[in-house]
Nucleic acid binder design. Structure first.
Length: 908
RNA sequence: GGGCAAUUAGCUCAGUUGGUUAGAGCGUUUCCUUGACAUGGAAAAGGUCACAGGUUCGAGUCCUGUAUUGCCCACCA
């Protein structure tokens, strides 16, 4: 952004400079630098325009661009460029996320290669290393976003660990704390033994796994009797402190008040009864491990059971595991199973399908683990966020995500926000050791929702306190933990705009307009931003949430580097160009559906860019560019019919594309553009107009259609459109700040469209016959056309030169009463009958077959149609215009049938 | 256990409020190196819209159920 390369060369170089093949490499960088230099991406709160704001889902600072980013950012850029051209003050706010665990893992990995660990380095040095890493590699993804063409206001680029954003984090923590919504406590949380940190419920990914259900025999003290319990994690038995059953379970009622004996360790276990125990599961008897299972934890609290923690943070067993101390949890499981089997305590092993939590960062199996953590009480924050969506102040597109959001919000649980890692926002809590020594924190300290949580010698503050307010001690210790990454991301829509300071940007650009993201982070990010936005800004952070699908490979697997199935967007850009990438990824993205990407799909985009390029090249070769004034439209009546036709089609395309973009139908818009440009403009208009191309009016139409089409395409394919637009007649200095095309209703001409439809059909019919009889394209044919009605007759006569030109006809006879020439093949279009003379070529038998086949088809349709028309209900109940339409069609078919029959008779 | 998607041409997928003969790209077949483009042009073949019911004059589209696949959520000891 600092060093500026030269501004691109002046437009309209000499024509022989223009290559036959579009080469994106030669232009993309130049135009991107041009846009940057001109400051087109910048947005100002001083503007008089209406604001349109998008905040980027900040990619991980260690990340590299993958196809998911490609899709996500292309969508945002399309919206941004579209709104910018429509005249909004458009801000696309960029930035990156510090991604606590992910980034720490990456840096730790590189340390390992040097034979170091973060512990051998120490906290301070380690964090320094991460910052260095970030300086070195953190810009990679930003550079890659440049290559994609992203029109973010880069000068505003933020990072979730910036000074300003860090201040926002502390401010929010303290405010929530003061409001009684933050507390600390010893609970069962999701623990990743590899990352050695707590995770939130959302960060635990549950996967269905076929494990085993082990039936174990627990003896009852002082009897020969035993109880059989079922467990999937037998190693946790070492932490059992009770067994339980449902109070109405007759099988176990007599055990009330007795004591069971834990096998292997011979610990005495209480026997409890609880309503929540399902008598139908397993044997109906439950082993209770309060420190290693969330359900057991609750039972233990309720019944006052002991908590025995048997695990170290790395999931090896600790001294409470007796002889199993030091073993990894899975080794211990094997050993214990073997031991239990030997002692005939293991009665049965069954296969059992259950879902097991995995760390979303490293895929390690999670342990439910009892440890002291910080939590945010969410219910009060969720309430207004539910209302905002229910009231429609924020809208999900597609709508179905509304329900997913509301369900989660309604059943929201408290958020575990502390992480036992080093890279992240340190929790703004300090402790005074002397005060805590004097009055230690009671072990089971309870949090009462809505009241401020306190502990002796604990200070919660925005900035580091210098002394303890109670005893004046200066040696305060900050809480070791850092905050969940999402604790900074949930503030993104306003922290990036300067909050908590007063900032005109906040007033102007907040709330944002559209959030574009994938459904996998609705809970992590979207829902939490809703809550934070409403809580701290008093207003929901976005009006619309556009949820797109996930990019998968052609086999349906989620794309990932490790699977080696990834199509690298940068490779596609290198080979086919950014426009091809953008075209490809958008064209296969139906609203909210997952996307299956493969390299071939981007070829379509490359081909389209090339087609645009060559059409423009052709126009430029024939255009007297200097004499064209786009603003000076010729009178409509002075235009040729094809000119009026393409203008009409162009205006309807403007209408369509604008509508598609307004309704977030991106792939549909692209489809319309592709069809209009390739099939209408290139295949028909350019071909039809070639003989007339020097006319002044046609020149204006060519330039105008190109100008407008390029503008419509620009949000999707910014580079090729700018490159061409600069070469053709244009107004203004860049297409990206040119006004979005407006529909000119006067140029919409349904009559000329209908007329052209007939002519194009006629041309195609003749071509069809030519092709069927394998007539060499170079050879001209004689054609006779019978049009029995004035309407068709007139049109055909008016446009006969087009037919001659486009179907390679040497002699064309048109009339009401034309008789069929000898040795001719027939083609029907509407009520018009066309005879193509095939002297010496025609095979009567084959032609008969052709006609008979056509006849059969017509009869089939007639039967279906007659059935409908004879149905009184249909005639009575269907709308008049539908009935009328069907009647007319029946007439047409009847007519056609008779003509085909006559054709058969007159056949040679 | 609950929920959400998907099922349409050989392949990958479109198909707003139900309404002529269901579309595209790729692939296939035939022809064409014609002064914009072979990353191209012309023409063509190819579909009982997963299945079974129902609503309706009329269903790919709405309703119910079934099957298959994928995803999400859930204290599935």
């Amino acid at each position: 952004m600092s060093a500026q390369p030269p501004v691109p060369p002046a437009p309209a170089p000499s024509q022989d400079e223009i290559s036959k093949v579009y080469n994106p490499k030669l232009v993309e960088k130049t135009w991107y630098q041009f846009w940057l230099k001109k400051g087109y991406f910048k947005a100002s709160s001083k503007s008089r325009k209406k604001p349109y704001t998008i905040v980027i889902p900040p990619p991980n600072v260690t990340g590299i661009l993958h196809m998911g980013h490609g899709l996500n950012n292309t969508l945002q850029d399309i919206l941004t460029r579209f709104k910018r051209m429509q005249g909004y003050e458009t801000l696309w706010m960029p930035g990156t996320d510090h991604a606590g665990i992910a980034t720490q893992n990456v840096v730790e990995k590189s340390l390992r290669e040097e034979g170091l660990t973060r512990h051998s380095l120490g906290r301070e040095k380690f964090v320094e290393r991460v910052w260095k890493w970030r300086e070195k590699y953190g810009n990679t993804i930003i550079r890659q976003l440049h290559r994609l063409g992203s029109s973010c206001d880069w000068d505003r680029t933020r990072f979730t660990m910036d000074e300003g954003l860090s201040r926002a984090v502390r401010e929010v923590f303290v405010r929530l704390y003061e409001k009684g919504l933050i507390y600390r406590g010893k609970y069962i949380i999701n623990w990743c033994p590899r990352c050695q940190t707590a995770l939130s419920d959302e960060e635990a990914q549950h996967k269905e796994i076929t494990g085993h259900l082990y039936h174990l025999k627990y003896m009852i003290e002082g009897t020969d009797e035993h109880v059989t319990i079922a467990t999937t994690r037998p190693e946790t038995m070492l932490g059992d402190t009770a067994i339980g059953f449902h109070p109405s379970d007759d099988r176990y009622k007599h055990l009330a008040g007795k004591t069971a004996i834990l096998p292997l360790l011979n610990r005495r276990l209480r026997i409890i009864q609880d309503e929540t125990i399902d008598p139908k599961f397993g044997t109906g008897a439950l082993k209770i491990t309060p420190a290693h299972d969330p359900v057991d934890f609750q039972l233990a609290q309720k019944h006052g059971l002991d908590f025995v923690n048997i695990m170290n943070p790395d999931a090896t067993l600790n001294e409470n595991a007796g002889p199993y101390k030091g073993l990894d949890r899975f080794e211990a499981r094997k050993k214990i199973i073997a031991e239990l089997e030997d002692r005939r305590i293991l009665l049965e092993t069954k296969e059992h399908l259950h879902s097991v939590g995995h760390c979303y960062r490293c895929q390690t199996v999670i342990e439910p683990y009892l440890s002291p953590q910080w939590f945010v009480h969410m219910k009060p924050l969720a309430k207004p966020a539910i209302a905002a969506v229910k009231d429609g102040r924020t809208e999900f597109v597609p709508k179905r995500w509304t329900k997913v959001y509301l369900d989660w919000m309604t059943n929201i649980k408290d958020w575990c926000v502390s992480r036992q890692i080093w890279w992240g926002h340190r929790i703004p809590v300090w402790y005074c050791p002397p005060c805590r020594a004097k009055s230690p924190v009671p072990d089971g300290k309870k949090y009462v929702p809505g009241t401020r949580y306190t502990e002796p010698g604990m200070i919660v503050a925005r900035e580091a306190p210098t002394r303890c307010p109670d005893c004046g001690n200066k040696d305060l210790i900050q809480d070791e933990d850092v905050l969940d990454t999402w604790f900074s991301s949930w503030l993104w829509p306003f922290s990036t705009l300067g909050w908590p300071d007063k900032n005109p940007d906040l007033k102007f650009f907040y709330p944002t307009s559209t959030l574009v993201t994938g459904y996998e982070i609705i809970f992590f990010w979207v829902a939490r931003m809703m809550m934070a936005g409403i809580e701290f800004m008093g207003k929901e952070p976005f009006k619309q949430v556009y949820i797109h699908g996930i990019v998968r490979d052609e086999t349906g697997a989620k794309m990932s580097k490790s699977l080696g199935n990834a199509v690298d967007p940068i490779d596609i850009i290198d080979e086919y160009g950014a426009d091809a990438l953008r075209y490809g990824i958008i064209s296969i993205t139906a609203e909210g559906q997952d996307v299956y990407a493969s390299k071939e799909k981007f070829e379509v985009g490359r081909n389209f860019a090339n087609k645009i390029w060559n059409a423009a090249r052709f126009v430029l070769m024939n255009l007297d560019t200097k004499s064209i004034n786009l603003k000076k439209a010729p009178r409509l009546s002075s235009l040729s019919p094809v000119d009026r036709w393409i203008l009409s089609r162009m205006n309807r395309t403007i209408e369509d594309i604008t509508g598609c973009l307004d309704r977030s139908r991106f792939n549909e818009a692209l489809q319309v553009l592709y069809d209009f440009f390739w099939h209408q403009f290139c295949d028909w208009y350019l071909e039809l107009t070639k003989p007339n191309i020097q006319s002044k009016e046609t020149q204006w139409v060519l330039a105008t259609v190109l100008d407008n089409t390029l503008k419509l395409m620009h949000p999707f394919m910014p580079f090729v459109t700018e490159e061409i637009w600069q070469k053709v007649p244009h107004e203004g200095e860049s297409i990206m700040v040119a006004p979005w095309p407006k529909v000119n209703k006067r140029q919409i001409d349904r009559k000329v469209e209908a007329e052209l439809e007939l002519i194009l059909g006629e041309i195609q019919a003749i071509r069809n016959v030519r092709s069927a009889w394998q007539i060499n394209p170079k050879e001209s044919v004689t054609v006779a056309v019978k049009a029995s009605r004035d309407r068709e007759l007139k049109v055909l006569q008016k446009y006969s030169t087009y037919v001659v030109q486009m179907a390679k006809v040497s002699s064309l006879q048109i009339g009401k009463h034309v008789t069929r020439p000898k040795e001719s093949a027939v083609a029907n279009i509407g009520r018009v009958e066309t005879y193509v003379v095939l002297s010496g070529l025609i095979d009567v038998a084959v032609e008969r077959q052709r006609i008979e086949a056509a006849l059969e088809e017509v009869e089939k349709m007639m039967r279906a149609l007659e059935g409908r028309l004879k149905n009184e209900e249909f005639v009575k109940k269907a709308p008049k215009e539908i009935v009328e339409k069907e009647r007319r069609r029946a007439e047409e078919l009847d007519n056609r049938k008779r003509r085909l029959e006559e054709n058969l008779r007159t056949l040679a």
